[in-house]
Design a binder for these strands. Sequence first.
DNA 1: CCCCAGTAGTTGAAGTCTCAATATTTCTAG
DNA 2: CTAGAAATATTGAGACTTCAACTACTGGGG
Lengths: 168, 168
Amino acid sequence: MKTPPAAEEPRWLTEEEQRIWLSYIHGTTLLDDHLDRQLQRDAGMPHLYYHLLVVLSGAPYRRLRMTELAMHTKITRSRLSHAVARLEKNGWVRREDCPSDKRGQFAVLTDGGFETLEKSAPGHVAAVRQALFDRLSPEQQKALGEIMEIIAEGLQPKEAGADLPWLR
Amino acid sequence: MKTPPAAEEPRWLTEEEQRIWLSYIHGTTLLDDHLDRQLQRDAGMPHLYYHLLVVLSGAPYRRLRMTELAMHTKITRSRLSHAVARLEKNGWVRREDCPSDKRGQFAVLTDGGFETLEKSAPGHVAAVRQALFDRLSPEQQKALGEIMEIIAEGLQPKEAGADLPWLR
DNA sequence: CCCCAGTAGTTGAAGTCTCAATATTTCTAG
DNA sequence: CTAGAAATATTGAGACTTCAACTACTGGGG
């Protein structure tokens, strides 16, 4: 009988938590912008598009179903459709019908796309190193990986029932 | 005389570094999307716009010069101009001329903007907690803050000369 | 005082992203 | 076997971002 049931005061962030959160916003904003600019300049595409090529380049036969590619990159299928349309226009990706499912489409990395990747990869890796790995201790790198994995895991569309408390 | 001078092989990311970098991409992609969606739904604006209101609410007289606001939020002045135009249309921010510099503009948080913030803040804090703080140990939270600060610091437009090696 | 390089901020066009709606195909219960 | 539900992928409109060009103003040397 201490607090009214409906108008609970929310648990605000502490000063320390606010600092951390602000640092997160600043760091990610600056890094994302930095890489987008670097890649736009050196490869003619934003970071996400580059990443799509990277993922395709590592897939069997350099191809992936649209839905799979979307899941691997954590983006919506709609966003991916638009992105692939643009990459196709550049000749870096090609679409192919899926023989076993008439609804399906493969996104296939073309030779031109692969060459573009080869040309721009060194500059991109250098940028990532310079902005991230060169500045962090091995412990911090390890911590960052673990932290981001936890965050990603918590936001992933889960398997059926996994977030139903009465099924835990 | 071991390696040709022009075609040095770049220092690719190790497997471990690749894992970390991929986790970073996944985590930030999912978290940014999650918060954008949450705020679009509950407050009618994307996360960046909400953050602009937050920063203004903490500034003296709830106002900041455009350039200052851009620096506080790590975005370009152009992006800010567009964003403030939209926030102004919503009645959450108002522009005011700067008396001491006729080029200058203040962005001022309106009462309506403040109320909107009050209404949506609890939900937003809850989302940040649930996605981030609730899942990380105190040590991880601390580490994340330090890591992001380092990254941000490295990408910040520096003071004149600060990045000239011969001035160090 | 005047020139002009630098600063503050805005603008429009082109590119990208979101959201809801759509067409098509596959799966499944009955 | 078939009707309905679910999955695959795309589309278009509107919102947001980027980039370069632009206006207006300031401040410091000649």
